[in-house]
């Protein structure tokens, strides 16, 4: 039974996502204000102007785990940021804690530069694996903020409590930190220590705020619809239980 419900939710989400992507909107999309993402958009533009770099960190990996969607959202955000920063003398640097993720980050950087017509600016060395365990990854990524003229650090992916070390490094080096993680423990750490934390599903909305992609916007609409359905289901089932029907 639970398999059927799961398949039904995935099927419904797929149909809605395809439909909203293909339907062309007549009016521009209106987004709820998320301070962290507004600041990130501004900071990305400023970094190009003042010749500083963006540091995007995708987490310790976990592409083959249930937390794999976090790094994928990070890669989608990276695509938009890299395209925006392709005119800069200092391209963004991307760090991760897994070999596969570092290869994907290099691929994403390359395709962003190609799309922006600045393929010659692409350097594979800007997509790096800084360590292959959570703390060695954090220890390897922290000095980048200090050593490589970083003005904004973005953490988006699979992080644990080690995200607190990134936040401390960013604060020490007076770099803006926009951070989101799929793990609730890491979210609590980031809420306490980051200048701008993304809570819950906000991290998955980040790519839509920076890219003008129909699929990104459609996925936000689908999330909203599914959220309302879940709210209605919770209320309905609570009422049923309260009335003693089931």
């Amino acid at each position: 039974m639970s398999n059927l419900i799961g398949l039904g939710i995935v099927g419904l989400a797929s149909i809605l996502l395809l439909a909203f992507t293909l339907i062309k909107r007549k009016s521009p999309a209106v987004f709820r204000n998320i301070n962290a993402l507004t600041r990130l958009r501004r900071a990305a533009g400023l970094a190009v102007e003042d010749g500083t770099r963006l540091h995007v960190s995708l987490g310790r990996g976990g592409l083959l785990t249930p937390n794999g969607a976090g790094p994928l959202a990070g890669l989608a955000l990276l695509r938009g940021l890299a395209e925006q920063a392709s005119v800069s003398d200092r391209p963004p640097v991307v760090t991760s804690g897994e070999g596969a993720l570092s290869a994907l980050s290099q691929d994403t950087l390359e395709s962003a530069y190609r799309a922006a017509g600045a393929e010659e600016q692409y350097q594979p060395i800007n997509g790096r694996a800084t360590g292959l365990t959570p703390f060695s990854y954090a220890a390897g990524a922290m000095p980048i903020t200090r050593d490589e003229y970083i003005s904004t650090t973005v953490l988006l992916g699979d992080f644990g409590p080690e995200a607190g070390l990134f936040a401390d490094a960013a604060e020490r080096d007076q770099s803006l930190l926009v951070a989101g993680a799929s793990d609730p423990a890491a979210q609590a750490v980031l809420f306490a220590s980051a200048s701008d934390a993304l809570i819950g599903e906000e991290m998955f909305a980040a790519p839509a705020y920076l890219n003008t992609d129909d699929a990104q916007r459609a996925s936000l609409t689908v999330q909203d619809i599914l959220r309302w359905l879940i709210i209605l289901a919770l209320l309905g089932l609570s009422a049923v239980k309260l009335l003693g029907i089931a």
Binding site: T21, I199, F204, S219
Partner: peptide
Amino acid sequence: ARGILLGVALGALTTGLRVLFAMDRPYGGK
């Protein structure tokens, strides 16, 4: 925590579907 996890799960679902339908292609190309 359940509220946050529900939000994360919905975000993860749509992100996964975008990759599954090749709307996002982090493995090169788009």
